[in-house]
Simulated assay, not measured.
Amino acid sequence: MHIVVCGALVENGAVLLVHRSPTRRAYPDLWDLPGGHVDAGESELQALAREMHEELGVHIVAESSSRLGDLYAGSGEDAVHVSVWHISDWVGTPTNTAPQEHDDIAWVAISELGGLALVFGALPALLTFPEPPRSALSTGR
Rank of each mutant, 00 (worst) to 15 (best):
H2C: 03
I3V: 02
V4R: 04
C6R: 05
G7C: 09
A8Q: 02
L9S: 12
E11R: 14
N12G: 01
N12T: 00
N12L: 10
N12C: 00
N12K: 09
N12H: 14
G13V: 00
L16V: 13
L17E: 01
L17W: 08
V18C: 06
H19I: 06
H19T: 12
R20A: 00
R20S: 14
P22C: 11
P22G: 15
T23D: 14
R24G: 08
R24V: 04
R25D: 10
A26Q: 07
A26V: 03
Y27I: 04
Y27W: 04
P28F: 10
L30N: 08
W31L: 04
L33T: 06
P34M: 01
P34Q: 10
G35P: 06
G35N: 10
G36S: 07
G36R: 10
H37M: 03
V38T: 13
D39Y: 14
A40G: 00
S43F: 12
E44R: 05
E44D: 11
L45N: 01
L45W: 01
L45R: 13
Q46E: 15
L48N: 00
A49L: 03
A49K: 10
E51N: 10
M52C: 15
H53F: 15
H53R: 15
E54I: 02
E55H: 13
G57K: 04
G57T: 06
V58E: 13
V58Y: 05
H59M: 12
H59G: 11
I60Y: 12
V61H: 15
E63V: 13
S65K: 07
S66G: 02
S66V: 14
R67H: 05
R67Y: 01
L68D: 04
D70Y: 05
A73Q: 06
G74R: 11
G74E: 05
S75Q: 09
S75K: 11
S75W: 10
S75P: 03
G76Q: 02
V80P: 00
V80C: 04
V80D: 03
V80M: 08
V82E: 05
S83Q: 05
S83R: 15
V84S: 01
S88D: 15
W90R: 13
V91L: 13
V91I: 02
G92A: 00
G92V: 04
G92Q: 07
T95P: 00
N96S: 10
T97I: 15
A98I: 08
P99R: 12
Q100L: 14
E101V: 11
H102F: 15
D103Y: 09
D103E: 14
D104T: 09
D104M: 01
D104Q: 15
D104F: 08
I105D: 09
I105L: 13
I105G: 11
A106L: 02
V108I: 05
V108K: 12
A109R: 12
I110N: 01
I110K: 10
I110F: 01
S111I: 00
S111K: 04
E112H: 05
G115L: 01
G115Q: 04
G115Y: 02
L118R: 05
F120R: 09
F120L: 13
G121T: 08
G121M: 07
G121S: 05
A122Y: 04
A122M: 09
A122V: 00
L123Y: 07
P124W: 06
P124N: 06
A125Q: 08
L126H: 02
L126D: 06
L127P: 08
T128S: 07
T128N: 07
T128D: 10
F129C: 01
P130V: 02
E131G: 10
E131N: 07
P133L: 12
A136S: 15
L137V: 11
R141N: 06
